[in-house]
Structure formats: structure tokens, C-alpha cells
Amino acid sequence: MKPASFKYYAPESLEEALVLKAQYGDEARILAGGQSLIPAMNFRIMQPTVLLDLNLLAELSYTSSKDSAVLHIGAMTRLSEVEDDPLIADRVALLHESLPYIAHPQIRNRGTVGGNIAHADPAAELPVIALATDSRFRVQSTNGSRWINSDDFFRGYFETAIEPNEILVELEVPFHVTNTGWAFLEVSRRSGDYAMAGIAVLITLDRDYICRQARLVYLNLSDAPLEAKQSADMLVGETLSDELIEQVANKASEEEIMPMESLHATVNYQRHLACILTKRALELAYGRAKET
């Protein structure tokens, strides 16, 4: 028996879960897919005293698009369900492209969208995708529910704007608009490992191939997903020449990202990776935007 002991609750309705979360607050950890929480508990890095298992809440497992502009994904939807969803592959290609980078099939079959986001690991893929797509999150408590924009949501290492009495219940992702190009790239030491660096790019062009909107978001190059706003702004109103792409990549990798040295990559190496990934991702996204 590896984890320390805890009180275990498996509520059968969201209402019941919210009452328990209100009662226990920070003491209660949410068990969603458990693919980060359980290893942390196995090694006793985390020893929650109360575990709130949401796996019986089928009501939190869905993808739906009631209107034509956005997709809603329930927090308990498994990552592999998102990976295999044809509508997501077609309309939110950036999200679809990032899924195979998340660990291995075993993990994606169990891990959830809500867990990946609420855990807020700076090396996780979905927080980066959420920021790049300008998604928002619905959190709920016994007092009701509220929406949090992705740029207010991530506060640093494993820190989010979720209050102790709240549970993340839903993600709202805008569909890509026409003439949008996307790219998601990572460099990791082995397939499925946490990446040393990664990037998500979303750019929208007008009919003359002039960039109207651009978002560059970096993975594991700060203590939270990092949006390089100034670098992205350099693209707006321009056509993407090789020179411009080079300038943007230099600016983002030298000035905007805030890499923290790790065992596997020095700061200089992380900046080098960010620069190369930016160039590759912009070229790929630009090519795709022209085709769509």
C-alpha cells in the first residue's frame, strides 16, 4: 500500500460533490483521471486527507456544440475520447494535434480534460492549447457557477484561479474560424515524456494572406503556459516572410519566454529550442492557413 490513507467519497451527483467540496475545501483533492495525482500519492509527494472521486459523474463527460462557434467539453471527458472525436479533428485541429503528445495510450484512456487543466503543470499540453484558442473554463460551487478566461486561469506552478470550494466542470473552446492555420510542436527526450519545450500557434489570415490575428503560446518555458503577446503582435497586419518569422522567433525566445533550467535542458538550450520551434510552427501554421 503506497499512498497514505485518506477519506474516500464517490459522489453520485455534481450537487453532492459540490456540497462535499464546500465542506472540505482545500483538504479535499479531486480524483478525476488520477494520472498525475495517483503517482504523486504513490510516492507520497501528496498526501490528501480527503479524496473526492468524480468518476461516477457521467454528467461531466461529453462534447457538445449547441451553437456553431464553440465546443463544450465536460471536465471528466477522457483524453482519448477527445483524441478520437471527428468533430474536434475537423473544427479544432490544434487541440486534436496536441493530444497524441500527452503521455501514452494507457494514460490518455484514463486521464481527463478537466484534470489536465486543473493540475496546471507548465509542461502539460491542454493549458497551452486553451490559451492559444482563447478558451474559457466553467467552475462551479454550491453558490453557482462562473466562467474564467484562460488568461486569468493559470497562476504559476500547479496554481489556478479555482477557489477551494469550486470544481472545474466544463471547458469552452472556440472553433477555428476560416483561414486559420495551426501548429503544435514539442521537443521531448522520448515519445510521451514531458517536453523540454513546446509551442502552440494559431494564426488567421485575410484573403490577401495578411495576418489578422496571431497567438503564440509556449509550453514548459515559464512557470505556467506563456503567451508571447509582443512577438505575436509583430505578425499582425503583415505577410509572413522568412525575415519576419526569424525576427519573431528571436524576440519570443530571447525576450518573452522565462525558461527555468532543468536537469535536461539549460536556459540557453531552452531558448534555442523555443527559437527553432517558433520558426517551424509559424511556417507550418502559415502554410495551413493559406490552404484552408
Binding site: G34, I38, N42, Q106, R110
Partner: peptide, 23 residues
């Protein structure tokens, strides 16, 4: 015990998972 090695792979409702990462 942290989901890297897959030596404990089992099927739950026909889906492949790691038995060490479930209660």
C-alpha cells in the same frame, strides 16, 4: 508506479489502462 513502464497494463471496459494508477 508512475505510469511510465506499462508492466501493469490491463483492460477496463475494453480500454487499456495502467493498474498502478487506479484505485
Amino acid at each position: 508506479n508512475d505510469g511510465n513502464c506499462g508492466a501493469c497494463s490491463v483492460l477496463i471496459n475494453n480500454r487499456l489502462v495502467n493498474a498502478c494508477l487506479m484505485l
